[in-house]
Design a binder for these strands. Structure first.
Lengths: 210, 210
DNA sequence: TAGATTGTTAATCGATTAACAATC
DNA sequence: TAGATTGTTAATCGATTAACAATC
């Protein structure tokens, strides 16, 4: 199978390839793709090999063809339907963010327990009460559940999503949650990220960059 | 030097140790620490070795002592002063988040270019105009700059922060930015995170979990 | 003492890089 | 053809895991 690291790089390649398309570049060499994304040429060739895309020793890789192939490889053809739970500042930031990313990523429903938010439409996405989650997700199933509630409720919300057939979760709450192995969990731990940034900033200042 | 992976795990250990302290646990074995954080006992012992903390074959590791040692290792003793640029939804979410994390992480100033936000105090942090950044950061220097502006301005903001002596950046904007090697950069690419979650959710559904 | 865990070294594993024949 | 790049295998590197003597 394709490793997590390779997937991450493929996402970065695609983002760059889209930029190259707007610049009307037709072909790109592994060396150029590597330099522009902070990798090595060998790494790029190995990654592209893993998705079965071939280049040409004379011209390099076809930009449009490669971009399309990565897209096909990464994204299911009917896109990704997402449900978001917790319409606080972070939730609203994510709703706003993805409203520009259609049609691949579609936020199909938002949930909260604050009555003031219920019924409102934020960035084109309707906010429901959390108790209606089973009904809403039965009508419009979601591939990805985005958890942006305070930590103490994260596990409960995760359990609800899983019970209602959501196969993947993205957890932004600081509380670690448990899921069965059949469910994919991506955790974005802000505290950890900032602690790490703080540590390495300090280390970099002290010249520890070997 | 201590690897990035080890630093990440140390942060997780500490978070758990703090929980154990509230539960009045005095000692913990490497096996328990490992199970509770999703690692192996050997991994834990190796990580603790790298920061020079010793346990006892009879009782395991002293919870309070270990927690304190990790804290001392990770965090400069006068805490981390942060400046945040871009007071949109994401910026406000982060301001709210860190207002509860004092005194280690202190948001000393926020900046925006929207006149409606200038002068307001959000989660205890005053919002200044971006043009005043040099003055404000001269008076209250920051260790970490948090970039939550739309992508197109990210590089310009990063350059301003670096020019004004900020040694570490956390970039939430989708646009990749360039920094000199003397500056530490932590990138949180939401698009990448969601693309990855979507891919692995799909792969997990198809049973590709070897 | 007997039994379990720590600290640390050696073995293993996986991912990255180097090398080079095949190709254009 | 000569020169450069691709595709792929072999070598290297770094991180994880296994093993075990020392310790309590």
């Amino acid at each position: 199978m394709v490793s997590q690291k390779t997937i991450e790089r493929l996402i970065v390649y695609r983002s760059l390839l889209e930029k190259l398309i707007t610049e009307h570049e037709e072909y790109v060499y592994s060396k150029a793709l590597a330099t522009l994304t902070g990798n090595t040429a060998a790494q790029v060739r190995r990654d592209l090999m893993s998705i079965g895309f071939s280049g040409n020793p004379k011209y390099g890789y076809d930009v449009k063809g490669l971009c399309q192939q990565i897209k096909t490889f990464l994204e299911p053809k009917d896109g990704i339907a997402m449900a978001l739970i917790g319409v606080g500042n972070l939730g609203r930031a994510i709703l706003g963010y993805f409203s520009t990313m259609r049609p691949t990523f579609r936020l199909v429903a938002a949930f909260d327990t604050d009555e003031n938010k219920i019924g409102r439409v934020i960035s084109g996405c309707r906010c429901h009460h959390l108790r209606d989650l089973p009904n809403v997700l039965t009508k419009t199933p979601a591939d990805l559940g985005v958890i942006t509630v305070p930590g103490s409720n994260a596990q409960r919300v995760a359990d609800m999503l899983i019970e209602n057939g959501v196969p993947g979760l993205v957890n932004f709450s600081p509380e670690p949650i448990k899921v069965p192995t059949t469910v994919h969990l991506e955790t974005i731990n802000m505290t950890l990220l900032f602690e790490k940034a703080a540590y390495f900033t300090n280390a970099t200042e002290k010249g520890e960059t070997p």
